[in-house]
Design a protein around this nucleic acid. Structure first.
Ligand code: FES
Ligand code: FES
Lengths: 141, 141
DNA sequence: TCTATAAAAGATATTAAGGTCTTTTATTCT
DNA sequence: AGAATAAAAGACCTTAATATCTTTTATAGA
């Protein structure tokens, strides 16, 4: 459904969010241990998210990643859009250049509503709600 | 959402289904022109679908692809499962080894219902319903 | 039986996703 | 100022998806 980059990104973000809630920053090594994601690859993903201002980062000793906004302001939609782009929310299910209700593909009528549900779900979920119940072995499997 | 192979596969199948409804077989060239898909790649996809008995094929003059079952018996679910496998219907949204409600990832509760909607949609749609309204320029864009 | 046709099979090529490694830059602390 | 730390940046590698090409096999029809 989502790319690996997106899966890792979301997992890493929940770890950062949790730490942010505790009032501290967290380094890439700890993030990747907790989120069970490959370190160098996840670093690239976070670099991208930092550039897009979804998260903040600080270099040097006592540096790391953190979030400077209210966690409830960062939706799953924002995250998926930042990493995988908007095509999952707007693209045609059969890969036509664009989904166009006036020239529907055979799947359009049914697909559109599933896709919209997905979008709604992603807009309703945010980092605050995602970290409720998150514990340190959630991703260890 | 779906792989290119799956998108092409579905598109090609609707073309074959339409021809089957007219009582004739159709060759790979015509299929790919009508479905607007790359020829050699689509041939591989159809080969796979023929092996899995979703479609039938006949070699030689006046040969081609066709379908020997009631079109309404072949669901989108069968097609997607045959080409992309079942992970889109059962996999964890955050990429954990398996989706397990007793050890849910942070997305589980919301994701499961969207994924189930997708599955329901795919089980409800079949080749018969997909080809209603299909015309020869549906895919030409 | 021979030829033409069309799919199957297999080999190969290209591109994008996934992943790693090394060097550079910024920052803190001594 | 200098050393240590940690992210950014960029180069590089690997694998899987996408795509093409060539050879083989089956079949219909002359
Ligand atoms: S046109 Fe294909 S999903 Fe809308
Ligand atoms: S455990 Fe992740 S979606 Fe069910």
């Amino acid at each position: 459904m989502f790319s690996k980059a997106c899966e890792y990104g979301i997992r890493a973000l929940t770890v950062i969010a949790k730490k942010t809630e505790d009032g501290s920053k967290v380094g890439i090594k700890d993030i990747c241990k907790a989120s069970n994601t490959p370190e160098s690859f996840t670093a690239k993903i976070l670099q991208n998210l930092a550039k897009k201002d979804i998260i903040q980062s600080q270099k040097g000793p006592s540096g790391g990643f953190y979030i400077d906004r209210d966690l409830s302001e960062i939706s799953l939609y924002d995250i998926v859009d930042a990493i995988d782009g908007p095509s999952i929310f707007f693209g045609c299910g059969l890969g036509l250049k664009e989904c166009d209700a006036s020239r529907p593909c055979p799947m359009h009528d049914s697909f559109e509503s599933v896709r919209d549900d997905m979008m709604k779900m992603c807009k309703e979920n945010d980092l605050q709600s995602l970290i409720t119940g998150l514990n340190k072995d959630t991703y260890q499997r």
